[in-house]
Amino acid sequence: MKEHGKLFSTAMVQAFLGGRKNQTRRTVDAHNSLVDGNGISKKRWEAAGFDLANASIDNGPSPAGNPGPYLKATCAEATTHRIYSRVQPGDRIWVKEAHAFVPEPAYRRSVGIVQTINPDDDYEACVYRENFDFDGAPSFPWRPSMFMPRWAARLVFDVISVRLERLNDMEGQHPLDSDAIGEGIFKIHHWRGEYYYSAFNSKPDPRNWQDPTDAFKELWESINGPDSWQANPPVWIYDLQPVGIKSKTMPSQGAPAECTLLGGGNATD
């Protein structure tokens, strides 16, 4: 089992805490992927010039017997490669969120203040910006999510499955079964029917959507830019389960199979 720290916005942390979010999408890039079974730097990834727009998705297994899914893509040198997810079923994802370190006694008796004690220094505790989003809250020098150490994580999830799709594949799903709901989209009931809105809006307003996918599209573009949905990139989809709750579909917690293909050649069928 491997653990992977992932950055999440305050809105997504709130969705996790509210029990609305059980999956996350990540673009296929150097940070989230292996090429022919090997890690690759961002610089080498960019130099390779993978044609992701025309890459094909294969759910596996590969000719070498490695489980899918993987993306089959050509690079600038016209060689073909298999791109796998770094995160595999049976791994864990821990949430990196905005936080601050405080003396542990400061909030020991405080009601409603979530804190995690440093296992190597029981006088130090971590508190979370999301918990201080109210009037009269103290102001801390909040540390960015990217600097959160593993011991401070309060949200940890087992990875139940890893899927690979184009971002727009979500379109056309029935609202009741839409992956947008699993991504943390809000649903509200109105006398005219059900409406959806994203955490980007924070609350119901005239921009409510009748299709949860439209609400997720709004959220995605708020994070990734105005043209990011239309670009329709391939994305890794991680289906998550809070640690401590065993899913019937949960695979073995053993280490995932290693891809045996080596880089530099064609990934022939």
Rank of each mutant, 00 (worst) to 15 (best):
L17K: 13
K2S: 14
N38I: 07
W236H: 03
A152C: 11
T213A: 10
A98M: 13
S56Y: 03
H31F: 12
P204E: 09
N224G: 08
L219E: 12
D214M: 09
D211A: 05
W94L: 04
A100R: 01
D211H: 05
P141A: 15
P226F: 06
M146L: 13
D91T: 00
A98H: 07
F147Q: 14
F101V: 05
Y70L: 10
I117A: 05
L17M: 14
A73F: 01
A73D: 04
R92Q: 12
Q230P: 14
G39H: 10
K217A: 03
P234C: 05
L34Q: 01
D227P: 12
A125L: 04
A53C: 13
Q241H: 07
D135T: 10
L7A: 10
A199M: 10
F16W: 04
V127T: 06
E77K: 13
A76D: 12
G193Q: 03
A53R: 10
L176I: 08
W236V: 00
R166I: 03
A199V: 04
D122Y: 08
G37K: 01
Y196K: 05
M12N: 12
I57Y: 02
G60H: 02
P141N: 15
D239I: 07
V114E: 14
W236A: 00
E124K: 12
H81G: 02
Q173Y: 05
A137M: 06
F157V: 02
A64N: 10
S62Y: 03
I181K: 09
R25H: 05
N118E: 11
G265T: 09
E183A: 02
I237A: 00
L155W: 04
I83H: 02
P119W: 05
N22P: 06
H31P: 13
D158Q: 10
A98E: 12
Q210C: 11
V87Q: 00
S110N: 13
A76W: 06
N131Y: 11
E183Q: 13
T116E: 11
H189E: 15
K72P: 00
S56P: 00
T80E: 13
T260G: 04
T260S: 15
D36T: 04
N118V: 10
S9G: 09
P105C: 11
A100C: 09
A125I: 07
Y70P: 00
G265Q: 06
F50K: 01
H81S: 14
A98L: 06
G136S: 06
Q23Y: 02
V162A: 00
S252M: 11
G90V: 07
N66L: 14
P119Y: 04
I245E: 15
S139G: 09
E183D: 15
Y128C: 03
E104W: 00
V159F: 02
Q173I: 01
V156N: 06
R163E: 14
W236L: 00
P119T: 04
G264Y: 08
N118M: 07
Q230F: 08
P175S: 07
D177N: 14
D211Q: 07
K43T: 15
A64G: 08
S56F: 07
S110K: 15
